[in-house]
C-alpha cells in the first residue's frame, strides 16, 4: 500500500520536473541551429524548425512531447541528426549504470568493513588511521584523484589502461575514482552506527548467552548498525549519478553523463530534457528501493 502511494506520488513529481526543465530550456534565448557553421537561409531554417516542431506555440510543443513520452519516445536529437534520444540512452545508459553499480559495490565493499573494523578497535591507532583515511577520501574530490591515479598507475606503472571502457581492466581506475568518496562516507557512518549499537541491551544479552564476538557483531549488531548507511544510500546514489559526469569525462567513457554535459552546450533541447528526466526517474526509483530496504531491515519502521 505504501509502495503504491509512493508510486502515485512520483507521477506528479515527474510531470513537474519535465515541465520545469522543458520551459527553463525553451524560454531561454538562442536556438539549436544558431551554431551551424554556414548560416542557413531562412527557408532552410524554417524547414528545420518545422521538422522539429519548434515553430508551434510552446504549450503545444510540451503537450506533444508529453504524448511522445507516454509512448516511450524521447524524441529526436537536434545535434546528432541521425540519432534519436532513445538511441543515445540505449547506448550510454548501460555503460553509466555499470560504472555506477561498480562504484557502489566498491564503496560498500570498502566502507562497511573499514567502518566496522575501526569501531571494534575504537580509540586505538587502527581507529585513528582508518578515520584519517576515510576523511581524506571524503575531502579529496574525484577530479583530483582521477588525474593522479591515471598518472601513477596508467602512465608511470602501466598497470591499467589510461582511458575508455572496454575490458574489465578499464573498469578499475574509474570505479576507484568514483567510489572512494562514498567509501569514506560509508566508513564513517558505519563506525558511528556500530558504536551506538554495541551499547544496546540486546547486545549485552547476546554476549551473556555466550555467543562468539563474530556472531554478536555480524549477526546481531550489524543489522541495526547498518541503518544509517542504508538511509544514506538515497543521497549517495544521487551524488553517484552526478559524480559520474566528471569520471566519464576524465576517462573518456561514453556514458550518458558526457551527452548530458554536451547537450547543455549544444542547446539540444529534447536530449537535455530527456536526460534530466531519465536522471529524475532513476533517482526517485532508487530512493523508493532504499526506503523499502529500510523497512525490511528495521522492523520498528513500518510505513502505513
Amino acid at each position: 500500500m505504501f509502495i503504491l502511494k509512493r508510486l502515485a506520488y512520483m507521477l506528479p513529481m515527474l510531470a513537474l520536473i519535465s515541465f520545469l526543465a522543458f520551459m527553463l530550456v525553451r524560454l531561454a534565448p538562442g536556438g539549436p541551429f544558431d551554431r551551424e557553421r554556414t548560416p542557413a537561409s531562412p527557408e532552410i531554417e524554417r524547414a528545420l524548425n518545422a521538422k522539429y516542431h519548434l515553430d508551434e506555440p510552446l504549450w503545444q510543443q510540451y503537450v506533444r512531447y508529453l504524448g511522445d513520452l507516454v509512448r516511450g519516445d524521447f524524441g529526436p536529437s537536434t545535434k546528432y541528426r541521425n540519432h534519436t534520444v532513445n538511441d543515445i540512452i540505449a547506448q550510454g545508459l548501460p555503460i553509466s549504470l555499470s560504472l555506477g553499480a561498480l562504484a557502489f559495490c566498491f564503496a560498500m565493499g570498502v566502507g562497511i568493513p573499514l567502518g566496522v573494523w575501526t569501531a571494534l578497535r575504537r580509540g586505538r591507532w587502527q581507529d585513528y588511521l582508518g578515520g584519517l583515511a576515510a576523511l581524506m577520501a571524503i575531502c579529496v574530490p574525484g577530479l583530483v584523484i582521477g588525474p593522479l591515479l591515471t598518472m601513477l598507475f596508467a602512465i608511470e606503472l602501466k598497470w591499467f589502461p589510461v582511458a575508455l571502457w572496454e575490458s574489465s581492466w578499464h573498469f578499475v581506475l574509474p570505479t576507484i575514482t568514483l567510489g572512494l568518496y562514498f567509501a569514506g562516507r560509508i566508513a564513517r557512518l558505519m563506525r558511528e552506527g556500530m558504536l551506538n549499537t554495541l551499547h544496546a541491551e540486546f547486545i549485552t544479552t547476546a554476549r551473556a548467552k555466550g555467543l562468539g564476538e563474530g556472531a554478536v557483531v555480524w549477526k546481531h549488531a550489524f543489522r541495526l548498525a547498518v541503518l544509517p548507511v542504508v538511509s544514506y544510500s538515497g543521497p549517495l546514489l544521487a551524488d553517484l549519478l552526478t559524480g559520474s559526469f566528471v569520471v566519464e569525462s576524465i576517462f573518456q567513457i561514453p556514458g550518458i553523463g558526457v551527452f548530458l554535459v554536451n547537450s547543455f552546450q549544444n542547446r539540444d533541447y529534447l536530449m537535455l530534457v530527456g536526460l534530466v528526466l531519465l536522471y529524475a526517474v532513476l533517482l526517485l526509483g532508487l530512493n523508493l528501493i532504499v526506503d523499502i530496504a529500510y523497512s525490511v531491515l528495521d522492523p520498528r519502521v513500518r510505513y502505513e
Binding site: 520536473i17 527553463l24 549519478l241 552526478t242 554535459v261 547543455f264 537535455l272 529524475a280 533517482l283
Partner: peptide, 9 residues
C-alpha cells in the same frame, strides 16, 4: 533533485 544539474541548466 540533483541540484548541480539545475545549476548547469
Amino acid at each position: 533533485v540533483p541540484s548541480i544539474i539545475f545549476v548547469i541548466l
